[in-house]
Design a protein around this nucleic acid. Structure first.
Length: 593
RNA sequence: GGGGCCGUAGCUCAAUUGGUUAGAGUACCGGACUGUCGAUCCGGUGGUUGGGGGUUCGAGUCCCCUCGGCCUCGCCA
């Protein structure tokens, strides 16, 4: 090692020792007579003093930000009153006797210690500078600790780590695949895994019993603040288990992480809520349970009014549901409510947003109040448990639109009204998801989770009678309104699996073509099994109290799925394309007027 | 594919209703200074206002196109 200590090591008990530190020049203060340099590495910052007696002042005065230097010197007590309580090493300083510039630096586009964070594009372009910031180093360290804790946990429970292929086969179900052209077999393509789902099931069939993997997954879909095209899952699968077994082992992991990382005691078992209950009470399958403001159904009241907007929706099978923002009436001006209205109209296709302000006498004031009979207003007020000063918001629309709109309003108001402590962590399970979703466009059933999910035993007959009512042995881990993980008990019976494929509109032939290996394997001694995958990036985001997944990943992609540092994706040589048997077709510009 | 916000000095930002030579802090360069730690003080360099086109006597500001970043709907089994 070029150094004897790191920049975070030195304390009073190192007095008078000769040490050598290596690091980056974080800050320099040139006093003419003496020069102070804050030397930084990922362990901390140590002040180095160059005083005239060292003969190094002239050389030290040439140091600039981000120079990489090696300094030898004596650990000294700082003069009376000169200690810096902001630094862990603030009681001491190193009085330099030797200085070596290991590498100079051009003036950096930004400095890792600057108080105003540059725009994210600049940070991503010069990611190595951004990653020198202690905030980023803290996150990556946290990430490393979380992954280690997960590995340790599963190791303690007898799980083995097995790697599965990155180059796999495309399965058109689900998300769009990233494709890799085959050179050996021109015209064919590998697909990067959206998850190791089938491989881990095959491992169960192979008798490996308890499997984990820190698995990179790829989905070629549009990005969000909490979504990257490549992301990391803690993938897990177990044999001879039911829902409670999988949930149990994750429960204890979550409790361990919460305690080790955040020092929070989590009460186990984590609460569970069915999908149906979540949709009724919160309009969302991953509700933020740190606060209330539940959705309240007023459809039955709406059937009693002559007011067309409510009555029409209620009579035609729609829903009139609302939320009560406690004491929020004064905080939401007409203008702000108009913004909320545009929000639900534009983003969720709601036809409108009905709202009421609860007056001091308990009456409801609203532009539409005059259209509603007094007894209807009274019933609404009672059903909503309205108190003076409250703001009531209603969506009259289809089930789906009312869920989406109200869930979004609830989330937005919850944040705007500070209804929860952002340090709080609420973990829970959402269970018993529907097996299938009806795809109106394709006029067919699609798997809500994936096609290998087992239905609840008591719902087996529904596969034939009413697939829409069939509930899955599925469970999602929800933390603070984010889906942090999800899994299912899988189908381990070949006939059952074929039946589900059939229901999903796959004929025997195409099921064989796509999943023949699985169907074969299921016939050759497949144990009951199930598992889960935890979104590691999201875990880190939540444990680090961030609202953006890019900060949890060393080298993330931009929203348009590019890497600003390497400028990937890039074009390739024609020679490479030729080997692959690929010719590019320019996208036709629309020249029509 | 749709909606929204943003783009001005290396970085963070300002610039009145469209009106003089586009400013500030910081960084950078030069100078001063022996205890600073957001060092201080003096001086200085630094701009195709993302790019292109248009309207106008005049555009950072208005309009159109385009590039890029972010948020979001669709999408994400």
């Amino acid at each position: 090692m070029l150094r004897t200590h790191t920049c975070g090591d030195l304390r009073k008990d190192h007095f008078d020792q000769s040490v050598t530190l290596c690091g980056w020049v974080d800050k320099y203060r040139d006093h003419g007579g003496g020069v102070f340099v804050d030397l930084r590495d990922r362990y901390g910052v140590t002040q180095v003093v160059f005083d005239p007696s060292s003969g190094l002042v002239e050389e030290a005065a040439r140091l600039r930000s981000e120079y990489v230097v090696k300094v030898t010197g004596t650990v000294s007590e700082r003069p009376q009153g000169m200690a810096n309580s902001k630094l862990a090493t603030g009681a001491i300083e190193v009085r330099a006797t030797e200085l070596e510039v290991l590498n100079a630096s051009e003036t950096p586009p930004f400095q890792p210690n600057q108080s105003e964070l540059p725009g994210e594009d600049t940070r991503l372009k010069f990611r190595y500078l951004d990653l020198r910031r202690s905030a980023m180093q803290d996150i990556l360290l946290l990430r490393s600790r979380i992954i280690k804790a997960m590995r340790d946990h599963f190791d303690e429970h007898g799980f083995i780590d097995v790697e599965t292929p990155i180059l796999g086969r495309s399965t058109p179900e689900g998300a769009r695949d990233y494709l890799v052209p085959s050179r050996v077999h021109n015209g064919t393509f590998y697909a990067l895994p959206q998850s190791p789902q089938l491989y881990k099931q095959i491992l169960m069939i192979a008798g490996y019993d308890r499997y984990i993997q820190v698995a990179r997954c790829f989905r070629d879909e549009d990005l969000r603040a909490d979504r990257q095209p490549e992301f990391t899952q803690l993938d897990m699968e177990m044999s001879f288990v039911d829902t409670d077994d999988v949930i149990g082992i994750i429960d204890s992991l979550v409790a361990k992480l919460a305690k080790d990382i955040l020092g929070i005691e989590v009460t186990l078992p984590l609460p569970r809520m069915t999908y149906d209950e979540a949709m009724c009470r919160f309009g969302h399958d991953a509700p933020d349970l740190r606060f209330g403001m539940e959705l309240i159904d007023c459809t039955s009241i709406a059937k009693e009014t002559a007011f067309r907007v409510f009555r029409g929706v209620a009579d035609s099978g729609g829903f009139v549901r609302g939320i009560r923002a406690e004491g929020a009436a004064s905080q939401y001006s007409r203008k702000k409510i108009d913004e909320l209205t545009d929000f639900v109209k534009e983003d969720f296709g709601a036809k409108g947003l009905a709202w009421f302000r609860v007056e001091d006498d308990g009456s409801l004031w609203s532009p539409i109040a005059k259209n509603l009979e007094p007894e209807v207003l009274k019933k609404i007020s009672e059903r909503m448990e309205a108190e003076p000063g409250d703001l009531l918001l209603f969506i009259a629309d289809s089930w789906e639109v009312s869920c989406k709109s109200l869930a979004a309003l609830r989330k937005r108001l919850g944040a705007e009204l500070n209804l929860y402590d952002s340090d709080q962590m609420h973990c829970s399970w959402i269970v018993e998801f529907p097996m299938f979703d009806w795809d109106d466009e394709g006029k067919r059933w699609v798997a809500m989770h994936h096609p290998f999910t087992a239905p609840r035993l008591q719902d087996m007959p529904l596969l034939d009678d009413d697939p829409g009512k069939c509930r899955a042995r599925a469970y999602d881990l929800v933390i603070n309104g984010y889906e942090a993980g999800g899994g299912t008990i899988r189908i381990h019976d070949q006939g059952e699996q074929s039946r589900v494929f059939e229901l999903l509109g796959m004929d025997t032939e195409s099921a064989r073509e796509r999943f023949g290996f699985l169907l074969d394997a299921l016939k050759l001694g497949a144990p009951p099994h199930g598992g889960i995958a935890l979104g590691i990036d999201r875990f880190v985001m939540l444990f680090a109290k961030l609202d953006n997944i890019r900060d949890c990943i060393a080298f993330p992609k931009t929203q348009r799925a590019t890497d600003m540092m390497t400028e990937a994706p890039g074009s390739v040589d024609n020679v490479q394309l030729e080997e692959l048997g690929i010719r590019l077709v320019r996208k036709q510009q629309n020249t029509d007027t």
